[in-house]
Design a protein around this nucleic acid. Structure first.
Lengths: 334, 334
DNA sequence: CAGCCTGATTAAAACGTAACAATCACATCT
DNA sequence: AGATGTGATTGTTACGTTTTAATCAGGCTG
């Protein structure tokens, strides 16, 4: 009800408001004895700093905006966890925006971020809006792209090397004696699917095989249902591939289910590997080999770059960080 | 860089700052022609309102805080999606706090919320801190409990009826001819596990059976690994139950895997049902029957109550909303 | 035509904090 | 003793907006 301000604290501690502000922001500037007096006054009154007043006067806030494409996707959830953890450690609050794949919603989120005068924005852009982001930067809001290549050199970005991941997966399949390999993919518009495909091709080439041998089966969605559909398609053909690389784990789980129901043995008849290493990959009937991405680290690293750009604008060097994925071998591959 | 203020807009439109504020907040108060003039000036200058200044002067913000226990858990992710959607529709920003089960972290989040002067807080409390929440309310911050019973009558809360859910599950098992039923549960400290157990007991009683017949197996965690462990424990005993009710889907998926590996047929030998209906329930080798909770709706409803309390404090009536869960029948039960 | 009402606009005073220049107390040096 | 320096503290101003009371321009009534 009655909001207690810095003045009340000052009055109780027998000191000026400016001094209270100093113990809050630059404690080393104030003598030990008065600092103690002020701090007990703060505790006694239950004072908590008015963030908006602080932001207004100081010209910058202690919040960052996080805009993700789908908060329901474990990938983004893990990223968000990394962002939230580091931001919280550094005393920043995180404003969450979920674009749900809608450019309009994304734009609305960016507007909210601008109104809140966030210090910086972490975003996995979906709508094509390089202008929007430039606008934020003109307003002094730092921007870091997450799981998306930088659009200009003076910009930070973090991503995971999907080409390397595709290569890891197919190299592993080949090492297990795979001969005829198929790639079960998602929509062609998704960059990650394309990159993983290129990586798969490179692995074949490195083994002295023709990348064109790789059978590609592109599904309209990257869900378990789509994966099961893919399995049916493959089963209807003359000969089954002896190894399958799926563009994500949901597809792989669907494929797995479809194959097992048809009596195909995994991995005896068909080797199967997914991508993302979601929690449920290890919980399926035949635990799933997969490619793990350092998702949580991705979020942390992006936040680290963002806060560095905010707090040390003079020395900050823009970087494009590329993480490397890992192979996780479980039961589904030979 | 150069931040454009309400004054600049006023100057360009040939009007006073107060009028600009009016077209922003009470457009009906200003004549059509001047409104147009102001609006084009706003667009022309790319003006966006300074949220902090607004909050400072108006005494309240357009943000709400959301504190969850584990952002990695699909349950909370869905809740968060519901919260974010409605808040965004109403022009509110959501500040995310992830307590990761740590009371200290939770407390820190609440402090951040207080500093930001959020309008209200949505929280699934973990640390026992009724005092903390009372403190927020004293500061004029509304609080709604999510998936947790109200601690006092003058408080809003939303939850899902776990007793009914437990009852639904066991009634379904009994209808399928189950005789010897076991309940694979999580830590006894978790209210949800207890409530679901009570529901299971009631279903037995309603069928004229003794609730004490229900075998309970409490695992230390509610993960797939714990579920697999539970399966091993059951398999080591003289006789296997002919039906299993698991306190969540992760446990159920683990149990399923353990049983299949031991050659037990599901559902022919053992009926199996989980709880939560997570996405992966339908993707397992034998798709999982489960109890679905309206998770997204839970988040939306909680936000609805919160915003009503904020925007109509006079007419607002505190409510405890209880949602009802649904039975989802798939392949794992007879 | 005076008086009054109505609707539109404005001037001015806050809101709580940070920052900077100014002041002060006091010790040290010449 | 006087000058100088140092470290601690304070007074004041400005941040951008909302809000209230006051002003103003017209139209209507009697």
């Amino acid at each position: 009800m009655t909001t207690v301000s810095i003045k009340d604290v000052a009055a109780l501690a027998g000191v000026s408001p400016g001094t209270v502000s100093n113990v809050l922001n630059r404690p080393e500037k104030v003598a030990g004895s008065t600092r103690d007096r002020v701090e007990t006054a703060i505790r006694q009154l239950g004072f908590v700093r008015h963030g908006s007043a602080s932001t207004l006067r100081a010209g910058h806030s202690r919040t960052v905006g996080l805009s993700v494409i789908d908060i329901g996707n474990p990938f983004f959830t893990d990223v968000a966890a990394g962002v939230e953890d580091l931001a919280s450690e550094r005393g920043y609050a995180v404003i969450l925006g979920n674009s749900s794949g809608s450019p309009a919603k994304e734009e609305r989120n960016l507007l909210v971020f601008a109104e809140q005068r966030v210090r910086g924005v972490l975003i996995t852009p979906s709508g094509a809006d390089p202008r929007r982001l430039a606008m934020l930067r003109e307003r002094g809001i730092a921007v870091v792209l997450v799981d998306h290549p930088a659009e200009r050199p003076d910009q930070c970005a973090v991503a995971v090397n999907d080409v390397a991941g595709g290569s890891l997966a197919v190299t592993h399949l080949l090492a297990g004696g795979a001969d005829r390999i198929a790639y079960v993919s998602g929509p062609a518009s998704i960059r990650q699917c394309q990159d993983r495909l290129r990586g798969a091709g490179r692995a074949l080439a490195a083994a002295g095989r023709d990348p064109a041998e790789l059978r590609e089966l592109a599904m309209p969605a990257m869900t378990a249902a789509a994966g099961q559909q893919a399995a049916l398609t493959l089963l209807a053909e003359d000969a089954l591939p002896d190894a399958l690389f799926c563009a994500n784990d949901l597809l792989a789980l669907g494929v797995l289910r479809g194959l097992l129901q048809a009596g195909v043995r995994v991995p005896a008849d068909v080797s199967l590997i997914g991508y993302d290493d979601i929690d449920f990959a290890s919980a399926s009937a035949v635990s799933l080999s997969s490619i793990r991405q350092p998702t949580y680290q991705l979020g942390r690293a992006a936040t680290e770059l963002l806060l560095d750009e905010c707090d040390n604008p003079a020395t900050h060097a823009h970087q494009q960080v590329m993480f490397q994925p890992d192979l996780v071998v479980r039961e589904s591959t030979r």
